[in-house]
């Protein structure tokens, strides 16, 4: 019923115009103490769409990403103005339970951070937290998640060895498996491939294209080719401001702003 009231996305020449809007930033500003790190961002992202946030370092793209699962709450002195809505609900409203929110908005970090536990326990961690105790149910979800993240074939014989023994790319895919095991609706990725070699990066990118069928993905990247390859929409940020947002093909071929053009063509950044 609720989708009837959802606004339709107005993407000029995109293929995603049929997607409903899921995430909406409405005049969002964020302060670290006195300094304003995000300046009046207004942006609407569609459901089951891959959106890339690009821009030079320090432009606030990661900070904006972390607003979506309220990871910024962990930092002292952060203050937010405006609204950040998911599915029409303001996630900064007073009665919002952050824990519940984070169950629905998964995250993959820049540096892979598997727990110092076995591979199996890493994936099962979130499930156990949320009350799944049945062994066969756990086994099933762990296998499915590892298959979805294209890791199953590589680790099925050593599920109970330490996750820290995996290679960097495998660790990052494990983190993705861990995130999708609890079936979030949105997955945030904060430069997930920046520390990986080209082959591992390619695998992660394939994986993202695969996951897009089921999840809404927001990815922060400083790799322009990567953004062009995997995203449907792209938002370009510069010193805390949203400069331009649109279909990826348009941003990379025919941007309407001069700064965007300079950045995507590699003239600065």
């Amino acid at each position: 019923m609720a989708e009837l009231f959802m606004p339709k996305l107005n993407v000029p020449e995109g293929k995603n115009s049929e997607h409903t809007a899921l995430i909406e930033f409405a005049d969002l500003s964020l302060y670290y103490g006195a300094s304003k790190a995000l300046k009046n961002i207004s942006l609407t992202l569609g459901e089951k769409v891959v959106t890339a946030f690009i821009g030079p370092s320090g432009c606030g793209k990661s900070t904006l990403l972390r607003c979506l699962n309220r990871m910024n709450d962990l930092i002292d002195n952060v203050r937010i103005e405006g609204a950040c809505k998911i599915g029409g609900h303001d996630i900064y409203a007073k009665d919002v339970d952050v824990i519940e929110l984070r169950k629905r908005v998964g995250m993959v970090f820049q540096k892979s951070n598997p727990f110092p536990k076995s591979i199996y326990e890493n994936v099962a961690y979130g499930l156990r937290l949320h009350g799944v105790k049945n062994k066969s149910e756990l086994d099933g979800i762990v296998e499915k998640s590892l298959r979805s993240s294209a890791l199953w074939e590589e680790v099925k014989d050593r599920l109970h060895t330490s996750a820290l023994g995996l290679s960097g790319g495998q660790q990052q895919r494990l983190c993705i498996a861990r995130a999708i095991a609890i079936k979030p609706e949105i997955i945030l990725m904060d430069e997930p491939a920046s520390a990986l070699d080209p082959i591992a990066t390619a695998r992660i990118e394939d994986l993202i294209l695969d996951l897009k069928k089921e999840f809404t993905i927001v990815i922060v990247t400083h790799n322009m080719q990567q953004a062009a390859r995997i995203s449907d929409q792209t938002a370009f940020f510069y010193i805390g401001e949203l400069v331009e947002f649109g279909a990826t093909s348009k941003i990379f071929t025919n941007p309407s702003q001069k700064r965007t053009e300079d950045y995507v063509s590699g003239r600065f950044g």
């Binding site: 609720a2 599915g87 919002v96 339970d97 929110l101 629905r104």
Partner: peptide, 9 residues
């Protein structure tokens, strides 16, 4: 999308 009501706890 109705599921997102669940975050209001």
């Amino acid at each position: 999308p109705l599921g997102w009501m669940g975050i209001h706890r």
